[in-house]
Design a protein around this nucleic acid. Structure first.
Length: 263
DNA sequence: GCGACAG
DNA sequence: ATCTTGTCGC
């Protein structure tokens, strides 16, 4: 069966991918292993020492062409913090090997994103970011190893997973449902900056529902990608929000779509 | 047939 | 992901 045909016929491929996720997960670090600390942009007296301050943030995303389902544009944007000046952009047209499948997004999107990161390290190592925002989940994933983890581990970079839609977790009877999240969001996320952990029946925390702004009632879903704690991931995401979505992923999205539209 | 489905 | 402008409200 063709790899691009979704369905039961590709079970052996999905099994192999599952094993690959569990193998890479052995290298996953879910605690703070980064030399910087987030601080609010409007904090007149940042508490962090100057050499511990967050200065370089980045975002990656893929945008798609109308005609061909497999053609896409991978984008990497590096920005200064806290003023979000765009310091570096790179775009690469790519031919995707695999179709989208929930739970296996990394096998579709990670390769082109990692290629952009390798190129950055080679051509402008001084712009290597302190943290990378990924458009997609990290540990908020059935096997706790989503795209943001995949990219973080393989690039050895602190990463934060940002989901704009909730991915339900039913694995191992966890029962993290859309309904429950919507109810809790409505009841507890009363203003920007508020969030709650997404905790399964087992007690495991997969990520957080975060209301980033007063003006954006719908939460985003933040999870650990690599080399940081959930608390750091949430605090850093909040520090990077001018709009509902953290600025690096927002810029990568906007600029890649603009690039497609203008060519 | 119905619901779920990161991007 | 993408199809898509204006428009209602603070």
């Amino acid at each position: 069966m063709s790899e691009t045909t979704p369905g039961p016929a590709s079970d052996t491929l999905l099994d192999a991918w599952t094993r690959e996720q569990l193998r890479l997960k052995e290298q996953l670090v879910e605690e703070d292993r980064c030399e910087w600390r987030a601080y609010l942009p409007d904090d007149a007296h940042p508490r962090a020492r100057s050499d511990e301050r967050l200065r370089l943030v980045a975002g990656v995303d893929l945008s798609f062409y109308e005609d061909d389902e497999r053609r896409a544009l991978a984008a990497l944007v590096v920005q200064s913090y806290p003023d979000f000046r765009v310091l570096y952009t790179d775009f690469a047209p790519v031919e995707l090997e695999h179709p989208y499948r929930a739970g296996y997004l990394a096998f579709r999107e990670a390769p082109p994103l990692l290629a952009l990161l390798r190129k950055l390290k080679e051509n402008a190592p001084e712009l290597w970011p302190q943290v990378l925002f990924v458009d997609g989940n990290g540990t908020l994933h059935p096997r706790r190893f989503g795209l943001a983890c995949h990219v973080g581990v393989q690039a050895d970079l602190p990463t934060i997973g940002i989901g704009k839609n909730f991915l339900q977790i039913h694995e191992e009877g966890e029962q993290l449902t859309m309904d429950a999240v919507k109810r809790t969001s409505r009841a507890t996320l009363l203003q920007g900056g508020q969030w709650f952990p997404l905790r399964g029946e087992s007690g495991l925390i997969y990520g957080a529902a975060v209301r980033t702004l007063d003006s954006a009632p719908n939460p985003i879903f933040v999870s650990v990608g690599h080399r940081l704690s959930l608390a750091t991931a949430v605090a850093t995401a909040l520090c990077c929000c001018r709009y509902r979505v953290p600025e690096p992923v927002r810029q990568a999205d906007i600029m890649s779509r603009e690039y497609i539209r203008r060519e």
